[in-house]
Amino acid sequence: MIIDFEHRSAAHCETGVISNMLHFYGHQLSEAMIFGIGEGLTFIYIPFMPFKGNAIKFSFRTVPGSIFTRALKKLDVKVNIKQFNNKEEGMKELDNLLTAGIPVGNVVGLFHLPYSPVRTHFNAHNLCVVGKEGDEYIISDPCWHTTLLNISSQDLMKVRFAEGTFKPKGKMYWIEEKPLIGDVRGIILKSIENTCKKMIGTLFVPHFGTRAIVMLSKRVRNLKKRYGDKGAMSYLASLVQVIEEVGTGGAGYRYMYALFLHEAAELLNQPKLEEYSSEMYRIGDLWRQFALECGRKIKNRTQSTYNDLGDKLLEIAAAERKFFVALKKEKQG
């Protein structure tokens, strides 16, 4: 039995699944729009946290799950979230929902996922289960595949009940009744303002927002002194991974926010936002250039020193700060 579910690919798992689920109920909200409304854009750097498994040391988006709750709360969509202690019970509940014809979003771990290219203990990947055929489930994974996939029920149980930090515990969510989404224009303005506040940051917490990028640049300058040659390389490598590979990659989130601003400009009929969109796009390019330079540094194919990398980060921090201060002023009139 398969639900008639249109699979559309997306850059990011969480927003992609929400967008697809809303599309199933007849609402055309793009992935970028959900990302913007859910205030997903941020920068977090927590230096004293060990980088192991899915610890948040550097992050370019908010904590997994927060985009989902924020966006759907603002859009006034009724969702049901459930977690289980018993594995069989969790699978049974999923079957019941599927027979009722409801697509169910699931939070899964990456380590045991059969088609995942890497094995890491990251427990916040999202996918949508849309059908069951015999012993196999049919899933839609928007951020890694362009078509629907089959997965055996044993594998699905294993990934749904993965262990480690942030245990998913078979977490699943579904939309209870057909949502009525009215005018989103007011919500967009509010969420742009909140994102600006978050990025500019508060005075006493330098770990969030643009000031965290400045902090990171200081750390990058002293990498060699602190960790030695090899340690510095692996630090840079994990930074590049976060920028290029985890989720959509840090630069990918910047591109996505630029797309959100572009869509907002069309919806609100404010051509000024279009300029901000192209500026955000430029910042995304800066991040990618930085990652490229780091990659070259790791493979010993460049002359640039750690100080140069730090300068690049400072440039990005200045650009982002200028951008968000201007955007906040613009919104306040």
Binding site: A11, Y115, Y255, Y281
Partner: peptide, 10 residues
């Protein structure tokens, strides 16, 4: 059988 990563480009 992995497609890679989707990016939004302008």
């Amino acid at each position: 059988n992995h497609e890679g990563q989707l990016y939004h480009y302008f």
